[in-house]
């Protein structure tokens, strides 16, 4: 079951094509990465999903239904450009945003109380937003985004401006929400975060979908059969006939296997030759490398 389906979505501003026939699905209960360099069309896509703007062509389905005026109450969206009314009190502000998302007064109050307890900020209700530090404001922003228990959570660069402690706090919350069944779209250009958090990604460049799939499958697809071997005794002398060594360090090797060659037989060769192996693992390309490679090849192709 897919929580979100995009079918050939197109959005044009003046003559600039911001989103060019993009299709992908976000499976329910997953953390999904929406990646792309700056200006790739991520924000345009998100604005279409959140019904802020309308697509020129194509269809967007949320939980199987075309998006409509009721969609915003089912989505929690934390934009990259985010802020709060500085003069408002924290409690009033959250009440306001929660009620706009369709919560009743009473429901909003209870929900806010729960989150205040969770983040141990019970005494913030009467504080003005401008009295809070930037990190504290981000916490309020996060609560505002999830207060109405959305089915789909869209976070655009959620960690920008957060210190490591608050970053971890929000990360934990994201994982917990996922366990409660919330689907999450995580939009960023920071690849190390994607690798850590996302299970599935779509890579957008110049308004086009250039790569889509599970993180593990994509990494497999782009792996180059390279292995790293760590050892702490003398290497066999005839090593260079047995393996294609592309990098040699004081106590490690990087070996390129040819297609069809089995890594087990290589390992067996080393062991039978009396080498003491401390570690042996496949080198998978980082998403960052794939990202850069894909973006540049596409650009060369244009």
């Amino acid at each position: 079951m897919n929580i979100l389906q995009l079918e050939d979505v197109v959005k044009t501003y003046d003559k600039h094509v911001a989103v060019d026939k993009v299709s992908f699905n976000v499976p329910e209960g997953r953390i999904f990465g929406l990646l792309g360099p700056n200006g790739a069309g991520k924000t345009s896509l998100i604005r279409i999903i959140t019904t802020i703007t309308r697509a020129d062509e194509g269809r967007v389905l949320l939980a199987g239904e075309p998006i409509n005026s009721n969609t915003p109450t089912q989505i929690g969206y934390m934009p990259e450009e985010r802020g709060l009314y500085k003069k408002m009190k924290v409690g009033d502000h959250l009440m306001y945003l929660a009620q706009l998302k369709g919560l009743s007064r009473k429901g909003a109050k209870t929900a806010i109380g729960d989150w205040f307890e969770k983040f141990e900020i019970g005494d913030w209700w009467g504080k003005k937003v401008e009295e809070l530090s930037k990190g504290m404001q981000q916490k309020i922003q996060f609560i505002a985004t999830v207060i109405h228990k959305p089915k789909l959570l869209i976070l655009d660069e959620p960690f920008s401006g957060l210190d490591p402690i608050n970053t971890n706090l929000i990360k934990d919350e994201i994982h917990q929400l996922q366990q409660e069944g919330v689907s999450i779209i995580f939009s960023t250009h920071r690849m190390e975060q994607v690798e850590e958090i996302c299970e599935e990604i779509v890579l957008i460049n110049k308004g086009k979908n250039i790569l889509n799939g599970e993180v593990k499958a994509i990494k497999d697809q782009f792996k180059e059969n390279r292995f790293r071997l760590d050892y702490d005794t003398e290497l066999p002398t005839a090593i260079s006939q047995q393996a294609n060594i592309i990098e040699q360090g004081p106590n490690h090797l990087v070996i390129q296997l040819s297609a069809g060659e089995d890594s087990n037989s290589l390992l067996r060769y080393f062991i039978s030759n009396g080498l003491h192996v401390t570690a042996f693992n496949e080198i998978l390309p980082s998403l960052n490398e794939i990202f850069i490679q894909q973006v540049t090849t596409v650009e060369e192709a244009v």
């Binding site: 802020i52 109450t73 934009p79 985010r82 802020g83 709060l84 009314y85 945003l97 998302k101 922003q141």
Partner: peptide, 8 residues
């Protein structure tokens, strides 16, 4: 704040 608002 405006982008937060117009998502609602």
């Amino acid at each position: 704040i405006v982008e937060v608002m117009i998502s609602s």
